[in-house]
Simulated scan of single mutants.
Amino acid sequence: MEGLPVVEVIIEPENLDRNRYVRIGEEHTKTLEFEPGKLYVKDRIRPRYALKDKLELPREGEKTVVIAPLPLLPLYKCMFGSTLAAELLIQKYTYHIPFHRQLRQLKDLGVILSESTVNGCFSRLGEALRPLYGRVREIVLSSGYIQADETVLPVISKDKHKAEKEYLWVARSVLDRMHFFHYELGDRKYSVNPVKCVKNIHLCM
């Protein structure tokens, strides 16, 4: 529990005559406590201004109506802010909590969301993070020491309506302490081959 914030609660004896007693020490009983998270709405208010005289023409470089540009958001026209989006991803990939359980947690915090809303924003988040993934992949594959592993996954085929054997790869740069996962249609011919990674890194690029 080192490094966590500490809230001290002092419990004094009742009806203690301090004229007769002196403090000689103290005992500590520590417990780990939890406070539920909270949700809030961030309202970005942008006032819109127009010329007072409607008959006046705007000067050079001016506009009839002026409003501040909207700051960049993680996703265009998405109700998820950056903090909630990050929390959803952390819960899913770090703590392996599926979305339907996260939706129940959000419901307990006072917000009811549909699975389609979360899944739609999640897909767009993946696209938004694609440049970061590409950069991590580039760093890993440029390393002189790479470890790679193949995992077999049973994936339901929508066409055949049954599970098929597909493949997921992970490549890890030992020196950089970075890794990435690779999945391309679950087919080995699209995947990162660890043998090729060792013999010729450029084949993985």
Score class of each variant (00 low, 15 high):
residue 59 R to T: 06
residue 68 A to W: 05
residue 45 I to A: 08
residue 53 D to H: 08
residue 47 P to M: 00
residue 63 K to Y: 10
residue 43 D to C: 13
residue 47 P to Y: 03
residue 70 L to W: 08
residue 48 R to C: 13
residue 66 V to Q: 03
residue 46 R to I: 14
residue 69 P to C: 08
residue 66 V to E: 00
residue 69 P to V: 07
residue 62 E to R: 03
residue 50 A to E: 15
residue 43 D to N: 14
residue 52 K to G: 07
residue 64 T to E: 00
residue 57 L to H: 04
residue 63 K to V: 11
residue 63 K to E: 10
residue 62 E to G: 04
residue 65 V to R: 01
residue 46 R to M: 09
residue 57 L to P: 02
residue 58 P to T: 13
residue 50 A to N: 14
residue 44 R to C: 14
residue 68 A to P: 04
residue 43 D to S: 14
residue 63 K to L: 04
residue 69 P to Q: 07
residue 58 P to W: 09
residue 46 R to K: 09
residue 70 L to Q: 04
residue 44 R to W: 09
residue 43 D to L: 12
residue 56 E to R: 15
residue 72 L to E: 14
residue 64 T to D: 00
residue 47 P to T: 06
residue 63 K to F: 03
residue 60 E to V: 14
residue 64 T to M: 00
residue 70 L to H: 04
residue 66 V to H: 00
residue 58 P to Y: 07
residue 45 I to H: 11
residue 60 E to R: 06
residue 61 G to C: 07
residue 53 D to Y: 05
residue 60 E to D: 15
residue 62 E to A: 06
residue 60 E to A: 13
residue 47 P to F: 03
residue 53 D to P: 03
residue 45 I to Q: 10
residue 55 L to Q: 13
residue 72 L to N: 09
residue 56 E to G: 11
residue 61 G to M: 08
residue 69 P to F: 05
residue 44 R to S: 14
residue 66 V to L: 01
residue 70 L to N: 00
residue 56 E to L: 03
residue 48 R to D: 12
residue 67 I to Y: 05
residue 71 P to G: 08
residue 61 G to V: 09
residue 55 L to A: 11
residue 48 R to F: 00
residue 46 R to G: 09
residue 65 V to H: 01
residue 69 P to M: 07
residue 45 I to C: 04
residue 49 Y to I: 09
residue 50 A to R: 12
residue 43 D to E: 15
residue 48 R to M: 12
residue 54 K to M: 02
residue 67 I to V: 15
residue 63 K to N: 11
residue 56 E to S: 15
residue 51 L to A: 02
residue 52 K to V: 04
residue 44 R to N: 15
residue 72 L to Y: 06
